[in-house]
Design a protein around this nucleic acid. Sequence first.
DNA 1: GCCAACGTTGGC
DNA 2: GCCAACGTTGGC
Length: 156
Amino acid sequence: MPRNWLMKSEPEVYSIHDLRRDGRTGWEGVRNYQARNFLRDDVRPGDRVLFYHSNASPPGVAGLARVARAGYPDPTARDPDSEYYDPKASEADPRWFTVDIEFQEAFPALVSLGDLRATPGLEKMLVINKSRLSVQPVTDAEYDIVVRLGRGAAPG
DNA sequence: GCCAACGTTGGC
DNA sequence: GCCAACGTTGGC
């Protein structure tokens, strides 16, 4: 499985700047089975993360993080006070999983979804065509291109 | 705020 | 197991 991921968060809920402040956070609240399976089965410590701001204007990749802890049961699923509470989750069957990620860097400027669409080599990025998947694999080549864009180098 | 796309739920 | 209804996501 890939060693790079794109993870989406609404910046009004939790942004790359919140992650910089916190240093490390649990990626909680994922309630989609395909994304859950990645978190539970495939995301591993040391994996690289493109931190994507969704529902923003514009949306795009805001910076980089690194996986600090592999998948474990999402505690918010069993917290009745959490907006992510799921009464069907139990200790025996946690149902939802989370990983911990730690801050790496915030890009000087967002790499917008429009930038991603316009950049050769990124045509197959899932975020472009399967935009609703909140945790998605990214190839090494795609990751390198996005990082170069984010750090301000000219495309190509 | 709108709405298209898509994932989930539940009746049958 | 199908599929219509419903709810959510997320770009615009």
